[in-house]
Nucleic acid binder design. Structure first.
Length: 510
RNA sequence: GCCGGAGUAGCUCAGUUGGUCAGAGCAGCGGAAUCAUAAUCCGCGUGUCGGGGGUUCAAGUCCCUCCUCCGGCACCA
């Protein structure tokens, strides 16, 4: 049995879960479920990032302590994930005691290795907003993008990580492993970025300004800035580091038994630099192995404009879920977006994808189960399931190729293609005609058994993307669970008592 | 400015290393069937594969150039 450890970013706890969070998390969930279906022992990690100035301010504004606000937001995220059928194994919070200790241990390791030094940080600071803004945020006008007020260039004491030392090693790593950053376009961007001299990374902020954070072990007047704090969650959850052990035995250099390194870090393309540059160099600095793969996905846009709160065109995945069900939302997101690229959300496309699920797959299940009930008393006949063999084999191969290669849209298209083929098979075989001819009973048996077997295959292929309805389909077929991939296509369906039930994907009147 | 993508049927897009690659789904039109959620199946596309040039026996598929759109160019979760 293989092992697979995958992560989403931890989402910043100052805002409500939105479609960006949902897409990343659903993508991760689909891959996690696929790996489980392929027989792997999976660790699927997600969580929230709870430190920093925004949390501190948002809590104060609501009359809460920072931790009270974080508790509230953790509940919001977990509830959202529950409603979307997310099967994470671990929900990490950066305020957990273990994480605080691991961050401290990592920082001490970096310092012991001689990669940390003290210097002045220079940046554009807005006095009214009490925070720094990036060059990009302030724009050429040099005003703070929130209130439009002035920004000034100021200096303050920070601790820095000698990221620049690792530039060459990182470039060699990326060039030596072409699939390490996917898709290739993002890899090229990172390499382009690394074509210029890499600067060092500021890793702390004065506690006088931001108190809600993890104090540096050697300088309690400074708190850990977001990068080290947030990214380290991946190591914390892996169990690789034991902060309570003596410094030489904590797991750096010599890994303890753990899930590290991660097999896959998933994220939106906006934080590729953080994951493909900051994080690996930090790991190098701490003598930890790098994650095996980094996959940055694209953005959902609405029509041809970017989704944004200010425009008011944000699509709420939970509202869609209320109307169509979690599986339909998941199907749309996975099937419609070419993994890695941007895609456009439109209500029309959503409905088309939902119709596909309902008419091609849902109706296939319903008509098949109805015929087994009508013609064979609800029991799958014991006959050779010798139809659709070519189509099934082709679908399985394309499906695995798509999911293994992180082209989920292609993999799931192959699954839906099999459902289309099964509908065609019904038309060709005309079971209703066979049922009228007593001497064709064995042909009808073979037809119905083939269809039942194909539905069992489909329940397995669709499980990662539509877990609830696929499990229900398996139950309707009289199976006690959704089959694993290695059990396909030979699933023992003969003799099973089926149940027709209500349509799997009911018609939704809009 | 530098770097990198994309431009294929009305719409959304597939098209690995050049040779059934001119395709799929949706929409539209016509037909079949009745097991089924007015669901399904079959048939129908004269598309300059953004423009131009080049390499080759052969190019959406490689090279050059032009046009249009988009993305990246660090302390932003």
């Amino acid at each position: 049995m293989g092992s697979f450890y995958l992560t989403t970013p931890i989402y910043y706890a100052s805002g409500e879960p939105h479609i960006g969070h949902a897409y990343t998390t659903i993508l991760a969930d689909v891959l996690a479920r696929y790996r489980r279906r392929a027989g792997d022992d999976v660790l699927f990690l997600t969580g929230i990032d709870e430190h920093g100035q925004k949390i501190q301010e948002a809590a104060a504004a609501q009359g809460l302590s920072p931790l009270e606000l974080c508790d509230l937001m953790a509940g919001r995220f977990e509830a959202a994930w529950d409603e979307l059928g997310i099967s994470h194994d671990r929900f990490i919070r950066t305020t957990e005691r273990e994480h605080l200790a691991v961050v401290g241990a990592l920082l001490e390791r970096l310092r012991a290795n001689g990669h940390i030094y003290e210097a002045e940080y220079t940046g554009w600071y807005s006095v009214s907003q009490e925070r720094y803004f990036t060059e990009k945020e302030i724009g050429p006008e040099r005003v703070d993008p929130i209130a439009g007020g002035p920004v000034v260039k100021i200096r303050e004491k920070n601790w820095f990580f000698r990221m620049s030392r690792f530039q060459e090693r990182l470039v060699r790593h990326i060039e030596g492993d072409p699939g390490w950053i996917a898709p290739a376009a993002r890899r090229n961007e990172v390499l382009g970025f690394l074509g210029r001299p890499l600067e060092d990374l500021s890793i702390s902020r004065p506690r006088s300004r931001i108190h809600w954070g993890i104090p540096l072990p050697w300088d309690p007047d400074q708190v850990t800035y977001v990068w080290v704090d947030a990214l380290t969650n991946y190591v914390t959850a892996s169990g690789a580091i034991d902060p309570a052990a003596p410094a030489a035995e904590r797991g750096f250099g010599e890994l303890r038994p753990s899930r590290w390194p991660a097999d896959l870090h998933l994220m939106g393309k906006d934080i590729i630099t953080t994951h493909a540059v900051y994080w690996p160099t930090l790991l190098m600095g701490a003598d930890l192995p790098l994650p095996r793969k980094i996959l940055a996905h694209g953005w959902w846009v609405v029509g041809d404009t970017k989704m944004s709160k200010s425009i008011g065109n944000v699509v709420d995945p939970l509202a869609l879920r209320d109307q169509f069900g979690a599986d339909a939302v998941r199907w749309y997101l996975m099937r419609e977006m070419s993994t890695g690229q941007d895609a456009s959300y439109t209500a029309e496309r959503f409905l088309t994808r939902h119709d596909e699920l309902r008419n091609i797959l849902g109706n296939l299940a319903h008509r098949t189960l109805s015929m087994i009930r009508r013609y064979r008393g609800g029991v799958v006949p014991s006959a050779p399931a010798d139809g659709l063999e070519t189509e099934t084999a082709a679908a399985l191969e394309a499906y695995r190729r798509g999911l293994d290669g992180y082209r989920l849209h292609e993999g799931f298209a192959a699954a839906m293609e099999l459902a289309r083929a099964a509908n065609g098979y019904i038309e060709t075989r005309e079971p209703w005609a066979l049922a009228r001819q007593l001497d064709r009973a064995s042909d009808l048996d073979a037809t119905l058994t083939t269809l039942a077997r194909t539905l069992a295959v489909l329940s397995s292929l669709f499980e990662p993307v539509a877990p609830k309805r696929s499990a229900e389909l398996a139950r309707r077929l009289g199976l006690d669970r959704v089959p694993l991939l290695r059990e396909l296509p030979e699933v023992a369906v003969a003799g099973r008592q089926v149940r027709v039930g209500k349509p799997l994907f009911p018609r939704v009147d809009v």
